[in-house]
């Protein structure tokens, strides 16, 4: 257990916490300023887990998994991994109100499930982009994104099962709870990174800490 690269030291953990706090704060400020989307992001929680514990961890974090929907988007750079934006118990549907004005033009022939999916894809990847982008930026990296994908109900845990069962034995997990004031929508954002980024991450944290030492 004492392989130093497997674990973050307390100082590194605190620093990473700080990076996440600032990063998410900036992401929220930019979302409000640039696209007028007001989101509150909770203080993020960071955990280093065995890969096979990730799913049960996520499962345990969400008290009510009924009527759940999820947007996933993979990102790559030195900071790489997957982001999972989870809307439990029908919260995602409330985001449809973002398009209220335009929705009126669609008439009545539309399937609400399809609209929810398209809305979450469209809005979800902006939120993911803001959060992941800002953290990467603070760690001195630039990431690129794969197209977002939408999953609902039982597909969600199957998907998590598929993508998280990496050969890598550890995963670094970041969790935040978000809330859109305007729409009274809340959910979870999980970022899961493979353990292989650890050497780079430690280096990036050291550089972040540099000026303070």
């Amino acid at each position: 257990m004492s392989n130093p690269l497997r674990e973050l030291t307390e100082l590194e953990k605190d620093a990473l916490q700080e990076i996440m706090n600032i990063g998410f704060g900036r992401a929220a400020a930019d979302l409000a300023e640039i696209i007028n989307l007001h989101v509150i992001l909770s203080v993020p929680h960071i955990a280093v887990l065995q890969s096979d514990e990730v799913i049960s961890y996520i499962h345990n974090q969400i008290p009510d998994t009924t009527d759940m929907s999820m947007i996933t988007q993979f990102f790559s750079g030195k900071f790489n991994g997957g982001s999972f934006l989870v809307f439990p118990h029908g919260e995602g549907r409330k985001l449809l109100r973002i398009f209220d004005g335009e929705m009126a033009l669609l008439g009545e022939n539309y399937d609400i499930d399809v609209l929810e999916k398209e809305t979450l894809v469209e809005v979800g990847n902006i939120i993911i982009g803001a959060c992941v982008g800002k953290i990467a930026e603070m760690l001195g990296d630039v990431v690129t994104y794969a197209p977002p994908r939408f999953f609902s109900q039982e597909q969600i845990f199957e998907t998590l099962d598929d993508v998280l069962n990496e050969s890598d034995s550890f995963a670094i997990l970041f969790k935040t709870v978000f809330n859109f004031e305007q729409y009274n929508v809340s959910g979870y954002l999980f970022l899961v990174s493979q353990h292989s980024i650890m050497p780079w991450l430690k280096q990036a944290i050291a550089e972040f800490l540099g000026p303070y030492e």
């Binding site: 992401a27 930019d30 988007q73 398009f99 335009e102 929705m103 669609l106 539309y110 399809v114 609209l115 999916k117 398209e118 809305t119 894809v121 469209e122 990847n125 902006i126 993911i128 982009g129 803001a130 982008g133 800002k134 630039v142 990431v143 690129t144 994104y145 794969a146 197209p147 977002p148």
Partner: peptide
């Protein structure tokens, strides 16, 4: 944010 974004026919 440098994200990838979609503008869907459905919406």
């Amino acid at each position: 944010f440098g994200n990838y974004a979609s503008y869907s026919q459905k919406l």
